[in-house]
Each structure stands twice: as C-alpha cells, then as structure tokens.
Design a protein around this nucleic acid. Structure first.
Length: 332
DNA sequence: TGAATTTGACCGCG
DNA sequence: CGCGGTCAAATTCA
C-alpha cells in the first residue's frame, strides 16, 4: 500500500521534474516553472510523509519556504529632538494590494525591491499603524517609487499595500534574483548545493520570506487602481498555495498550455470574491484594464517584480498582452 | 562604520 | 484644526 503510494509520489515527482526540464529550455513563464517546482516539492513532502507513517525517521529539510528573519520591532524610543521640515501629501496610488499571508509574518511578502522605511503613522480608525517606504535608491538613482503598508483591521494577517510611482532605478529584484539563481543552478546541475542555498539565505532574507509566504499561502488582491496609466510595474502576485498543493493550479496551467500561453481559463474559480489571473510585470506598464473589483492573482512571485529586471528569461514573460483583463467575465 | 529603522515634529490639504 | 504624509536626528543593526 504505502510502497505503492510512495512509488506514485516519486513517479509523479519525476514526471513533473521532467516537465520542468523541458520548460527550462522553453520560454516558459517563471510562474509555470515555479508551479512545477511546487508540485515536485509536494511530491517529496508526500513521499516523506509516507515514510514517516512507516515509522522511518525522516528529517524533512526546511523547504525554501521555511526561513524566517523577522525584523524585530523595537519599540524603545529614545529621547527625541526638535525636528522640523517638510510637507506634502500625495494621492493617486498606482496600485493597491491586499497581501494575505498565511503566516504570522510581520511583513507582507517582499516584492523584490529594496525599500527603505521612512515613516510610520497611526491611522485614524485603523488598529495598526501604516508604514511608509520609499525605494532605497531614491537618492542614488532618483527612484521615486514609494509604497505604504498597513495591516488590515479585519484580518491582521492581511497587509494592504499601496504602491505609488514607478521604479526608475536599475535595482534588480532580490527575490527574482534568488529564484532565478536557484533555477539556473537547477538547470545546470540538476539541483543546487546546500552551500549555495545557504549563501542565498543569508544574503537574501527578503526573497526567502517571499518564498515562505509563497509556500504558505498568500493572496494578493488589487483594487481601486488609480492612474492606471502609471501602473506600478512590479508588485508580487504570490500563488494561492492551496491550488498548488492540490494540483488544480498545475492542472489549470497544463490545460492552458503550460508553455506560457496562459489563457483565460487559467483563472481559477477558487473563491467567490477572488478572481485569478496571471500577468507579467513586464507588461504592467501597459496594463490598463478597468479593474474595479478586487482581483486576486496567484502568480509566481518570480514574474512579478522588476521593471528593470535584467534577467533575460524574464524579459519575455509569456503573458499575453492582449489578455482581456478588463473583461469581467474572465474573473469568475 | 555605513545602512536601515524608529519616531516626534513639521507641513499641506480638506 | 485634524489627519495623513514626510523629514531627519537618534538609534539600532549588520
């Protein structure tokens, strides 16, 4: 019994791995690849579970989704000084997202960019303060991208993230860099060394957190998009893990030509309030749909960020520019 | 030691 | 005048 199940898991893992292998040589989307990887990991997990059931001691290594490095919030506040300056109010957010993390992370999934916190404010009517971030390269490269992060009143696990401005810096997504790095190594060696992975873990916590969120269930919703002509070209669209786990997500991809030509059918009917779609950030600039409803997007974080991502494989994400995002019927 | 975060004050807008 | 956004000194982190 168990051996049979184990065998099936291993076979499935092999098949998906082979499939992934093929896609590595094709212009498939990273989302697709990521889904395949998830699938593979799932097979491993299942296999290990089976072994565990048999009484074998199996040490399950933490997957890419288990590292945590939560920046501690030190509330100690030293004496303050007289500081004066500044002004300004701005409106017209380019993106407003709701990042629902299944974890208890204090920070929502990283979007691949380096942000520098420049303020925090208690907002009237909100139980949680709002954090203000700007691109780390604001001064060095004059990047004016900013974002606001605030926990939702309704659900503390949900982060409402608002983006404004476009990244003009040459910043490369840490997250994407990490992910691509992993893929690259997988491509060259079949797997990547633990050492290398460790280095990545040490150097790119944010990316790891993103993975963590990715693997533990994350939902991103966009809503009330203003100034779509200036849509922020890079925000994360983590995957709805449940779909990944049960395979439906993969199947959906398969049925829709996993080669990357995601068709509308790719959209999952998972929830009544959420609508799924995939999009490439590289096309976000021209993304001008009239999204008035909340939209959830289970897409690979890898193909999310980065307007300036100079990763060739991401240059031509397979998202079809002609995809009718503005067609409501596709969001069911 | 430089970078990032914290946090109270300043400022513009409604 | 209050609220939200931003600044920048102080502090913490790596």
């Amino acid at each position: 019994m168990e051996q049979e199940a184990l065998l099936n898991e291993l076979k499935e893992g092999r098949e998906v791995t082979n499939l992934l292998m093929k896609h590595l040589h094709l212009p498939s989307s990273h989302q697709t690849r990521l889904v395949l990887i998830e699938k593979i990991l799932g097979s491993y997990e299942n296999a290990l579970s089976i072994l565990n059931c048999k009484g074998l001691v199996v040490e399950t290594k933490p997957s890419l989704s288990t590292m945590e490095s939560l920046p501690s919030i030190d509330s100690s506040s030293p004496d303050k000084r007289d500081v004066f300056k500044k002004r300004k109010t701005s409106s017209g957010w380019t993106e407003q997202l709701r990042v629902c993390s299944g974890t208890s992370l204090d920070n929502p999934v990283d979007d691949g960019f380096c942000w520098r916190k420049y303020g925090q404010k208690a907002i009237l009517g909100s139980n949680f303060p709002r954090g203000y971030y700007r691109c780390t390269h604001r001064h060095s490269q004059g990047c004016l991208a900013i974002k606001q992060v605030q926990k939702s009143n309704d659900d503390p696990t949900i982060f409402e993230v608002k983006y404004k401005g476009r990244h003009t810096c040459n910043q490369t997504s840490h997250f994407a860099a990490t992910y691509v790095s992993v893929l690259t190594e997988s491509e060259n060696e079949g797997n990547y060394s633990r050492k290398r992975q460790h280095q990545l873990e040490v150097k790119q916590k944010q990316a790891q957190q993103a993975f963590s969120s990715f693997g533990s269930g994350l939902k991103v919703k966009t809503e009330d998009l203003d100034n779509r002509e200036d849509i922020f070209p890079s925000f994360p669209f983590p995957v709805e893990s449940e779909q990944v786990k049960n395979g439906s997500f993969v199947e959906a991809l398969m049925e829709n030509d996993i080669m990357g030509n995601l068709s509308p059918a790719f959209i999952s009917p998972a929830t009544s309030e959420s609508n799924y779609f995939s999009m490439s950030p590289c096309h976000m600039g021209s993304f001008e749909s009239d999204l008035t409803d909340i939209i959830s997007a289970p897409t690979s974080v890898t193909n999310s960020p980065i307007g300036d991502l100079d990763i060739s494989s991401l240059d031509k994400l397979e998202f079809d520019p002609s995809f009718p995002f503005d067609n409501p019927e596709f969001f069911y």
